[in-house]
């Protein structure tokens, strides 16, 4: 799905922020990008999204060098889910989602019946079809995030790149959004997301990419990548991990807890 080789990212040539990194993310993966503030997660993200030119290395998306994609073709391959924001004018939820159809539309054209049908289908998939005619400015943060995901789905890509999908969300909405993310992975979507909570990687992801200081980069199974030792390294605070059994089906889950509690 996405393959990165010796990627070096940064804003100015000669001043790399992060890298060189090499990793591969496969179909149906949920990959969490984890690391302390200011380490270059967003820089890496922007580079993967093509908003920032890499200072070195190559990125392949579906086996094709991402520089060979046109803007539209790229938007049909990779969809970006930004943090839910509020525009100054109130668009309806449906109008926001149908914007995702743009890469599949002609230049100079407006969305037609089929495009709105795609938008409705994606709203249905996110269980928010009933909110289609509400104003995007007036819905809750959790729903806004669902709308952003629906818009990304309307691009008809199989790869979703999410920038901290659960920031500003209450605990219930966080769980709902991440539940939807897992459902999408089950449907064959590949998801890469930045997260600040190691538990998200344990509970929802099957891959973790950890970026730390001094060029530290590990990637692999979350429980292998995120150990008590590596978390201390990443965040500079002691963290203990526990394996617990879930009440309803006896599955095992890993949770983390700060040492200083």
């Amino acid at each position: 799905m996405i393959k990165v080789e010796d990627l070096v990212c940064g804003y100015h040539p000669g001043k790399p922020v992060v890298g060189p990194l090499s990793f591969e993310i496969g179909k149906g993966d949920i990959a969490c990008l984890i690391g302390p503030n200011g380490i270059g997660k967003t820089t890496l993200f922007k580079t993967i999204l093509g908003l920032l030119k890499p200072l070195g290395g190559v990125i392949f998306v579906n086996g094709k060098n991402y520089r060979d994609y046109s803007a539209k073709e790229f938007a049909r391959t990779v969809a970006y889910v930004p943090q839910g924001h509020i525009p100054p004018f109130p668009y309806t939820v449906r109008d926001v989602v149908v914007m995702g159809c743009n890469p599949n539309m002609q230049e100079l054209s407006s969305p037609g019946k089929e495009d709105y049908a795609v938008a409705d289908e994606m709203l249905e998939l996110m269980n928010i079809r009933h909110l289609a005619n509400r104003d995007y400015t007036e819905i809750s943060g959790g729903v806004r995030q669902m709308v952003m995901i629906s818009r990304a789905l309307a691009q008809q890509t199989r790869l979703l790149v999410m920038d901290e999908p659960t920031t500003h969300l209450d605990y219930g909405n966080e769980t709902l959004v991440l539940g939807q993310v897992r459902k999408l992975a089950g449907l064959g979507y590949t998801i890469v997301m930045i997260t600040h909570a190691p538990s998200h990687a344990f509970l929802y992801a099957n891959r973790a990419l950890a970026i730390g200081r001094d060029g530290l980069f590990v990637n692999g199974d979350p429980s292998a990548v995120l150990t008590e030792e590596s978390l201390l390294n990443l965040y500079g605070v002691g963290i203990q991990l526990f394996d617990v059994r879930l009440k309803n089906d006896q599955r095992q889950a890993r949770i983390c807890m700060p040492m200083s509690i």
Binding site: F74, A75, A79, D95, N102, P103
Partner: peptide, 23 residues
Amino acid sequence: LLVRWKVNILFLGDDEARMLGVN
């Protein structure tokens, strides 16, 4: 009037508009 709908997308800001395939 022909580009009217695309203004919606430009309105989202440069990065998002670019990610939605708008030149």
